[in-house]
Design a protein around this nucleic acid. Structure first.
Lengths: 98, 98
DNA sequence: TTATTAATTCGACGGTTATCGAAACATAAA
DNA sequence: TTTATGTTTCGATAACCGTCGAATTAATAA
């Protein structure tokens, strides 16, 4: 992965609220392996203390960095983690190959 | 690690030039295990196309996020990677415990 | 001491960003 | 069809950020 793309990914995670949003999506993603449930962002909006329009903006940035994929299900939005990319970028920090 | 600190770390890596700077330090850090050499930032400045004052500013941000530690050796500056923190944050992305 | 080299500090400029609220849109419910 | 709900878009505002260049400090070399 080239530096520019990696920087974009880190940037997507560089704001406390947006990182929290990502972590909640990741948490729901993990849970879905057992329960088969999915992550609707409506449920997340209530946890964070920011407006819906801001959430929408943050989601778009996470998706733009390809950290997540989104899918419209009826009037809801479902979010999934891009596992391969996350693995790749977490390896990139460089000191876990030992 | 709390979300705020993690976001600060990702922010430190969120700019292409600063990420490249970090990666060069990490590379020199790896190499030092064999050669015993150390990472002087003077050598790095020539690689990146930005002024010395900007480098100094970036180094301070990396250090402020605790990703690196710095030590003055004569008139030079030596940089080291904070391995534990890097490991911790790379695990935090959440999907490599499988 | 004087000159050179490495690094830092400072002020400024231009561009980006997080957030809000209102309005618009889309889908589902009544 | 009307109403309600989830999401997006838009414009605006305030704060933040990367970069530069000049001046400064500190340490070594001549």
């Amino acid at each position: 992965m080239d530096t520019k793309k990696a920087a974009k990914i880190f940037k997507a995670l560089s704001h406390p609220n947006r990182l929290e949003l990502y972590l909640k999506i990741a948490e729901a993603h993990e849970a879905s392996f057992q329960s088969g449930s999915e992550c609707f962002i409506t449920d997340i909006i209530d946890c964070l203390n920011i407006g819906a329009s801001t959430i929408s903006h943050h989601i778009k940035e996470l998706a733009n960095a390809e950290l997540i994929t989104t899918e419209k299900r009826g009037k809801f939005l479902v979010c999934k983690i891009n596992e391969e990319l996350v693995d790749e970028v977490s390896k990139m920090l460089g000191l876990n190959q030992k």
